[in-house]
């Protein structure tokens, strides 16, 4: 699960201008790696790939700050 999300962020939606790849503990939100559209695309990817529904009330920094917290959130669903 973690590898798929890391690959998606690195290949599809990261706004990081350098060649440096993101890791599971990197701050996606405060670190500026994801903008709001990137966040929506990531949520859409998670819903399709892992067959869950992410309601708006779950779209919080606690759940999406890094890939570790995202995988924890998905596992809890």
């Amino acid at each position: 699960m973690e590898e798929k999300i890391v690959a998606f962020v690195n290949d599809q939606i990261s706004s990081n201008q350098t060649d440096e790849k993101i890791e599971a503990q990197d701050d996606l939100l405060g670190g500026g790696i994801l903008d709001s559209l990137g966040m929506m695309r990531l949520i859409s990817f998670i819903e399709t790939e892992f067959g869950i529904k992410v309601p708006p009330e779950d779209m919080t920094i606690e759940n999406f700050i890094n890939i570790e917290t995202i995988t924890g959130y998905i596992s809890s669903k």
Partner: peptide, 13 residues
């Protein structure tokens, strides 16, 4: 309204 930090999700929805 909602949790602290939920403003983005609220306005987006």
């Amino acid at each position: 309204l909602g949790k602290e930090g939920a403003g983005w999700a609220i306005t987006n929805s």
